[in-house]
């Protein structure tokens, strides 16, 4: 098992390092990730969404639907714990954990 784990880790690691070769430099202001979609958020945040905090406007407005999904994930986790751990109440005194 240990050998297998080590092998998997090494293969994955080599693959990731290979892919990182064509990454833009770290912190490059003109990397593709920063010039295609993101500038609209920076420039439009106050005019279109009404807040100077760019992250807020993206979280709650431009990509607000993702945030609804995120809250649903939390709800799912909560319901999952209730489903898995809640026990039937047997008489008084026994707490339900």
């Amino acid at each position: 098992m240990k050998v297998f784990a080590l092998l998997t880790v090494i293969i994955t690691g080599v693959m990731l390092v290979y892919g990182a070769e064509d990454f833009p430099k770290w912190g490059d202001p003109n990397q593709p990730g920063s010039v295609h979609v993101a500038p609209r958020y920076t420039q439009g945040t106050y005019i279109e969404a009404g807040t100077p905090n760019i992250v807020t406007s993206v979280v709650a407005d431009y990509r607000g639907y993702d945030t609804m999904g995120e809250t649903t994930v939390i709800f799912t986790a909560g319901m999952a714990c209730i489903l898995m751990l809640r026990k039937k109440k047997r008489g008084e005194g026994e707490s339900n954990v």
Partner: peptide
């Protein structure tokens, strides 16, 4: 995001 909703639900079920 929806994959995680479905997965968490599946784990619990």
């Amino acid at each position: 995001v929806f994959l995680e909703i479905a997965s968490l639900a599946a784990y619990a079920l």
